[in-house]
Every structure is written in C-alpha cells, then in structure tokens.
Amino acid sequence: MGLWETISGRSRPKRANLDALFLVPSAAVTLQTAAGLLPTGDGAVCYRAATGAGFHETQGDIVALLGAAPDAPQVETSVDSFGFTWLQVHRDPSDPEGIAALCTDLHAVNTTLESEGFGPGLLCSLVPFADPTGRRVGLVYLYKSGTFYPFAPTGPQQRDNLLELQVRDTLRAELPIEPELSGWLALWGAPGL
C-alpha cells in the first residue's frame, strides 16, 4: 500500500492476474518427464461466493457455458468448511490434449467472474497431478500474487514437503513460483487431492 492509501485508509480490492494459467500445460509436460507426475484430468477454481442474486446468476452462467461446448467436461460445485466455493471440472485423463482444454475451462471461469466484478473473490486454481505409486500433488495458482506453488497433502493435516520442494525445483524455470514458503497456503480437503 502506498502513502496515499495509508492516509486515506482505503484499499481497493486486489485484482486477479489470470493469464499465467496458460503456462500450466507446458509445466505438465515437464512434470511428467522429470518427476513422473501425470495430470488427473481434474481441475478446480476456488473462489469466494458473494451474497445475492448477481453472483448466483453468474455462477449459473459459468456452469451453462462450460456445458455448452461440444466436448463439454463434467462440472460440479461444492462449498468447503471455510465457506469457499470449489468449481470442479473433470476431463478424461487419457486425452493428451486434456490438460490444455482444462486450462481453457478454468480460464473461462475466471474471466466470467472477473467480467461480472467478482474478480477480487478469486482465491486460487488447482490442477492435481498423480504418479503411479499414488502420490498426489496439486499445482496451485494464487490469483492475487500471480504465483504458483505445489501442495501435496498426505493426511488430514500433513503435507509432503519433500515432494513439494522437488516439484518447485522442477518447475522453477517455467512458472513463477511463490518465493515465500509461508505463502504456500494449505488447502486441506481440496477436491481431487
């Protein structure tokens, strides 16, 4: 915050940075070759639902928009224990183009929310990956800082820090990674992980 914002006690809601999501498909290729992690075909956008009819309508529009495409994915919404909504998109994991289509879906969700004025409510997007041994790690995109970080839960309140750091080092050249480890928000109970 600048001096003027401090003096006037007035912070504007932070705007979301959306375009970095399109870096995910190439990062997915790197993850597959370097760490054996494959996309699970799922993806989710986590946001804060605003009160009232305007938001309800917008969310309905998004689900309809995603369902209208010829290769429509499965879409569902759920609300977690913190009151944040997860809009989940499921695609066929065996489709090699699936991850690119998934990112387009997630981007469509973001731009629709943004254009209706709900951009400040966007928290993160999540693209889960899994390896053949069953380890799972989610690539999380934080809209407000415009950075990615890996999140690998192993239990109800436990995360695999070693795997997370390994993923960070693998993707460092391709994605803007959140530099502060304290900013690697734990998303317990995130769908798809």
């Binding site: 912070s11 932070k14 804060r48 913190f82 944040f84 400040p120 409510g121 928290l123 993160c124 934080l142 407000k144 800082s145 309140q157 304290s182 900013g183 928000l185 734990a186 317990w188």
Partner: peptide, 19 residues
C-alpha cells in the same frame, strides 16, 4: 488453533498480504 489460522491464511491469500 487450526481453524482460526486456516481462516486467516485464506483471507491473507485473498488480500495478498503477509500473515
């Protein structure tokens, strides 16, 4: 206090401020 911390974590991520 996991719930309290979780709530503040998310709000800080939403506002992009240090926790």
């Amino acid at each position: 206090a996991p719930e309290l911390h979780g709530m503040i974590d998310r709000l800080c991520a939403l506002a992009d401020m240090p926790k």
